[in-house]
């Protein structure tokens, strides 16, 4: 359970988040949505302790994340920012293996290697395990980065636009993996732009607008024509197709 209380944050001196209150329950995939510049990535980074809050607190299972020692925090929480670029020439297996660093301190034992193999398989990367990152495609690299965060076996998993560069098959795969992790008791937060994907795979939504929570709730509560039209300041229609909501602009 991630609890966010009266959270504010600034970027380069400018206030970006204002007094955010939210609770993110384990067992669910929570989609973070909203227009460009709403503060989604900033909120994720503040929860993940990559940015400092200017006020308020974030706790994970009751423990304040801001004063947790970094290795301990990394065992409980994993965050992937958008557009992460990796300069060292590593193999896919090396990179995913680094996900075990918070647990192993660098020496991977058999149990660590089994977890790495399982995460590679989950994201359809087993055949690429020995390839260097500079010899695979952008979407494959993105999946390798997601696999690294999975290998951390965290209690909270934060993914900022993880579907960038992914083909439809792997979009589905990543969202299903997120769901599997959530069902296993992980609190999963995913920043998404595609609201139809959010409607189909998320259990809860938090919509941000101009640094504040604009709406929060189940997909059928948030993904409605009037709410989305007001959120994005543009006319949006929501249709029901085969039991799932499809969002049209």
């Amino acid at each position: 359970m991630i609890e966010i209380r009266s959270l504010s944050a600034k970027l380069g001196g400018a206030p970006v988040l204002h007094d955010i209150d939210a609770t993110i329950a384990p067992g669910r995939v929570t989609a973070l949505v909203g227009p460009n510049g709403a503060g989604k990535s900033t909120l994720l980074a503040v929860i993940g302790q990559l940015l400092k809050a200017s006020a308020g607190s974030v706790t994970l299972d009751g423990a304040d994340l801001s004063d947790m020692p970094p290795p301990e925090r990394a065992r409980r929480l994993a965050i992937l920012r958008q557009n992460t670029t990796i300069t060292p020439r590593l193999t896919v297996a090396d990179l995913v293996g680094f996900g075990r660093y918070p647990h192993s301190g660098g020496r991977l034992d058999d149990a660590d290697l089994r977890i790495v193999d399982a995460c590679l398989a989950e994201l359809d990367l087993s055949a690429l395990a020995g390839r260097h990152l500079d010899t695979i495609s952008g979407g494959q690299r993105q999946r390798a980065l997601i696999a690294m965060t999975l290998a951390q076996t965290p209690r909270a998993l934060l993914l900022d636009e993880p579907l960038n560069n992914l083909d439809l098959g792997h979009v589905r795969r990543v969202m299903e993996v997120a769901r599997t992790r959530a069902r296993a008791g992980v609190a999963v937060v995913v920043v998404l732009h595609d609201l139809s994907i959010a409607a189909r795979f998320a259990d809860a939504l938090i919509a941000l607008k101009a640094g504040r929570v604009f709406a929060a709730g189940r997909p059928d509560e948030v993904i409605t024509g009037p709410t989305l039209s007001a959120l994005y300041d543009t006319p949006i229609d929501v249709h029901e197709v085969a039991g799932s909501r499809v969002v049209l602009t």
């Binding site: 980074a45 993940g48 302790q49 990559l50 970094p70 290795p71 301990e72 925090r73 990394a74 065992r75 994993a78 965050i79 992937l80 920012r81 992460t84 670029t85 990796i86 300069t87 060292p88 590593l90 680094f98 996900g99 660093y101 918070p102 660098g106 965060t149 951390q152």
Partner: peptide, 20 residues
């Protein structure tokens, strides 16, 4: 050596992995 490699992943990725 391992920690220098992780630092090479960049600040955010290093912090995510709990590197000081």
């Amino acid at each position: 050596a391992g920690r220098f490699t992780i630092a090479g992943l960049g600040e955010d990725a290093s912090l995510n992995l709990g590197l000081r």
